[in-house]
Design a protein around this nucleic acid. Structure first.
Lengths: 208, 208
DNA sequence: CAAAGCATAGCATGTTTTTGTTATTTTCTC
DNA sequence: GAGAAAATAACAAAAACATGCTATGCTTTG
């Protein structure tokens, strides 16, 4: 299979980004491969690249942000880009989150070359590719995803740092009642019954 | 630099293991490179390889276990092996844990090729290499590492699953007083003041 | 624009956790 | 086999939390 296009890798783990770019090169399907480990540089590249056909291999975990939040940027700068998530995540909520954005492909870092080839082939044929191990997380119709509001996540961070309700209230200039209300709502959403469980949930799903 | 020896990569992320192995090959310092993503297969390889000179590039995060627990196996099977940790961890406790085992090298996955070369050169000269970003975690003399006992970790798991002190006591057939005592001890060790902070700590340091 | 969801706030009550302090038995480790 | 560390257990007071219920103004979005 020969895909006459450019491929670009974005992963904050430089060693992975460079190695994987090498693998893409060696694989021979692309006519050029670039790798980035800094979001800024990647965005600069996109800007200069213009609206040509392009493959983007994206990591979900990026420092300070995540792969999803730059998806809008990518789509704005290049509406032809084929976007493939390469993720080490296994937390259902994270996978669901990624799937919600309907990328062209999603591959686990535990995948092998064979999976990778299948992914490319599917996309070239205009279909999407979802790593088989993520199939169970494809949303059923009517199913709701648990999401957290910015405020909730902010408060969660305070709790994770050892702040009590009263301390959090003081630091956010809110009433302790409000903190209780938020906290209660979060725990109801995530179906947790102790703050310990809530924090485990938050960590697992990379909310904080 | 030409190192006439075999190199082997162990990382459960196949895509990384394979890509990185390719990078090692391309780099040209080794006369052969193998990659594994399953611990069993890796151990089998070690057994058959015998006690020859060897470079091992090891991930810390492995499913069901971690890179440290197989260190003893590696040393038993090959006392000449140069062991380099390639890790995505940044949690101080995890890094300290790795450093305690005195590997020949430790490199962050965020390192670049230049860092990698420096690592190899240092080891070839008989010295150890520690990623500069991990320097702060090198233990000072007299410094204590925070460790958790098996019982403590067991209880931590109960808490992470939403069990209260009373519930945990019931499930472990212990007195609630005992649970309180353990809990208190852990929190003192980790310098946490709420169970929320404790659970965040536990997650960050991959205790549970 | 209406409905839904978000952020805010309140009160009351019973439960749970945290903290200060102490102590015995068992199990490693040198 | 002595000493250290771990696991066990207890009591009591103070602080914090969970949960029952209600309610209002503000955004966002179909």
């Amino acid at each position: 299979m020969k895909i006459l296009t450019h491929a670009v890798v974005l992963d904050d783990h430089r060693l992975f980004a460079d190695s994987f770019a090498l693998l893409l090169q060696r694989f021979g399907a692309f006519d050029a491969v670039s790798s980035f480990s800094k979001v800024d540089e990647f965005i600069d590249f996109l800007r200069s690249f213009g609206n040509q056909k392009l493959y983007v291999f994206l990591d979900y975990y990026l420092p300070e942000t995540n792969g999803l939040s730059i998806l809008t940027d990518i789509k704005r700068l290049n509406n032809q880009a084929k976007i493939v998530f390469i993720t080490s995540a296994i937390a259902p909520a994270v996978i669901r989150n990624i799937l919600r954005y309907k990328p062209h492909g999603i591959l686990s870092k535990s995948a092998d070359i064979q999976d990778f080839i299948m992914c490319l082939e599917a996309i070239e044929r205009g279909r999407e590719y979802i790593d088989p191990q993520f199939e169970p997380f494809v949303m059923q119709r009517g199913e709701r995803v648990v999401t957290f509001t910015p405020r909730e996540i902010e408060l969660l961070k305070y709790f994770s740092q050892g702040n009590s309700i009263a301390e959090t209230a003081a630091k956010t200039f809110l009433s302790p009642h409000t903190i209780v209300a938020h906290r209660r709502k979060m725990m109801a959403k995530a179906n947790c019954h102790t703050i310990a469980e809530m924090l485990t949930y938050a960590q697992k799903n990379h909310l904080i």
